[in-house]
Design a protein around this nucleic acid. Structure first.
Lengths: 244, 244
DNA sequence: CGTATTTTTGAGCGATATCAACGGAAGTGG
DNA sequence: CCACTTCCGTTGATATCGCTCAAAAATACG
């Protein structure tokens, strides 16, 4: 491939810009601990990169598990449905994050995944991943690491839900977003929320009104600025302190 | 090993009764999808089987991650500490269940694990597991499956915490125990709780008084019987219905 | 048998949910 | 680009669930 690149850079550059090598979130994604040549192998097993519009489903609960999905850009929510029809959001996911790991266990997706905004997805068929793992052992290790991290995240969230009051939950939620959206090069001091207050409340176990009220009080305390969906962090120390 | 067994059965039988082959929870544990000869290999990498008394630690948060632990008998709680010193329980674990999976990611235990009663543990050094995975590929797959299952569990719990009222949470908690403690051969209609009301409340995000009250009301409704720590399920249908 | 721990039950209070109304933003179709 | 509609966010008033405090009963433990 790199050979072709030299001889015909114009055509190839189109593929390149969607490839892992040129992906802006590569350092957060599966090929994190993989060297240059190996990325091409990973690239090959990325099946396609569908563009989702807002509210489009990536997968439904009950779907057969075929692939893991990496978010190239945009944002996704995952949620289950209670029998009485209401949805319960279990996570928000951003660029560089992998979803579908919870489906490996029983070969079936256990939640729904919906784009919160225009989103680009890298589809990675799990069979290919398992095959590739023999060639690149670090991939298996990386998957294990990511799963372990997800368990940790969920359990952190459980701890929060068990012991925190509304204001703490909201603060914790925002601080968590801050951490996840910050990169080596930039601190995410302004966050444009891709989800509604209702979705935040659903996720945090609060009513949408309480989310709104607690955001207002965090603003009054000079910790954040709220301007519709644009949240500006004014005192990160204080925010972090609320999270313990 | 099976050779020695024939020549000197008396000595070996002692080892056997603690070995995986003879373990009563084998079908729930790591060697679930492994055939006879392979079990001996697994047996070999089980380092030791410490007996924990009530309140003894299996590991502390911050400990270097060395091993996964399977519970042979007894019960364990895992919990983290908030900065203000209180503990937040993230899970209860019973015979046949594996703990420590969340530590693989950052090579460090992220929570504490304490025996709730007399408990026997199988210590499985992770290095050995990784090594053995090349010999028994199904082991790696099994670990992945178990991690995925834990993610699913945690997310189910998150859904519960986000949307359920106190009575539902308690009902859900009991039904979950029922499922986990039931085996092919027996339905766990009577459950002897190894944890206090306070620990249940901590786990469910409720006060110990509320746990007690909601158990009483479930009893009044004829759904369960409460006799100190012995819970008898009288109407499992109704219990399950509350969980939704 | 006595002490400590755990559990139950009651009373009052506080945090958060629910209900309601309004204003603003965003999307839609002309 | 504007008018219309729908969705979203804020704020206020009231209701309710679950917490805290308190005390006593039941159980476990040495």
């Amino acid at each position: 491939m790199s050979l072709i690149k030299k001889t015909n850079p114009r055509v190839i550059s189109i593929k390149d810009f969607s490839s892992c090598s040129y992906c802006s979130v590569r350092r957060l994604c599966l090929p994190v601990s993989v060297d240059k040549e190996e990325i091409d192998i990973i690239d090959e097993f990325v099946e396609d990169r569908p563009h989702l519009k807002k509210s489009e489903y990536l997968f439904h609960a009950g779907d057969k598990f075929r692939s893991l999905y990496a978010i190239k850009s945009g944002a996704v929510k995952t949620f289950g449905s209670t029998r009485d029809g209401r949805e319960q959001i279990t996570g928000f996911h951003f660029a560089g994050e992998l979803i579908g790991l919870d489906a490996i266990g029983n070969n079936m997706h256990n939640c729904n995944a919906v784009a919160l905004e225009k989103t680009v997805i890298c589809t990675m068929p799990y069979q290919n991943i398992e095959g590739i793992s023999t060639q690149i052992p670090s991939i298996q290790h990386e998957i294990t690491r990511l799963m372990s991290k997800e368990i940790r995240n969920d359990e952190e969230m459980l701890m929060a839900m068990g012991s925190m009051r509304a204001e703490q939950r909201v603060a914790c939620f925002l601080f968590n977003l801050h951490r996840r959206l910050s990169t080596n090069s930039s601190d995410a001091l302004s966050i444009r929320l891709p989800m509604t207050r209702e979705e935040i409340g659903n996720y945090l176990g609060l009513s949408l009104e309480t989310v709104s009220r607690r955001m207002s009080s965090l603003q009054e305390d000079g910790i954040i600025n709220v301007e519709n969906r644009l949240i500006t962090l004014r005192d990160i120390e204080a925010l972090q302190h609320l999270c313990n």
